[in-house]
């Protein structure tokens, strides 16, 4: 998998990414997932990443982009199959 923009988060990211990929292919796509089982690993990685984004001032750029993306959320969070 790819690296993190914050090298200090690489280990946590790798742990989470492997967990997610396994969950996605073996459970989620087969319809056997009710929740994201890798959430605890994600939270550890996210705590590390959030700090790095804040330090670099990227968090605000992301917040703005998130607002710009609201229309896409409205459109694509609806099931396409009807």
């Amino acid at each position: 998998m790819s690296a993190s923009l914050a090298p200090e988060c690489n280990v946590l990211k790798e742990r989470y990414d492997s967990c997610f990929l396994k969950w996605y292919s073996e459970k989620y796509l087969r319809g056997n997932a009710t929740q994201d089982e890798c959430a605890p690993l994600f939270n550890a990685y996210k705590a590390c990443l959030s700090k790095a984004l804040k330090e670099r001032g990227i968090d605000q750029m992301v917040d703005e982009a998130r607002m710009d993306n609201k229309d896409n959320d409205a459109q694509y969070m609806k099931p396409a199959g009807g």
Binding site: M1, S2, A3, S4, L5, A6, C9, K13, Y16, D17, F20, Y24, Y28, G31, A33, T34, Q35, D36, F42, Y45, K46, L49, L53, I58, V62, R66, D73, Y76, M77, K78, P79
Partner: peptide, 26 residues
């Protein structure tokens, strides 16, 4: 040219099963 790919948020909608992921690509 892709240096890093970070996952910012990830949520699974319990009713639709749609998985929403935000990533930051450097």
């Amino acid at each position: 040219h892709v240096i890093a790919v970070d996952t910012l948020t990830r949520t699974l909608d319990p009713s639709t099963h749609i998985l929403r992921t935000e990533r930051l690509i450097t």
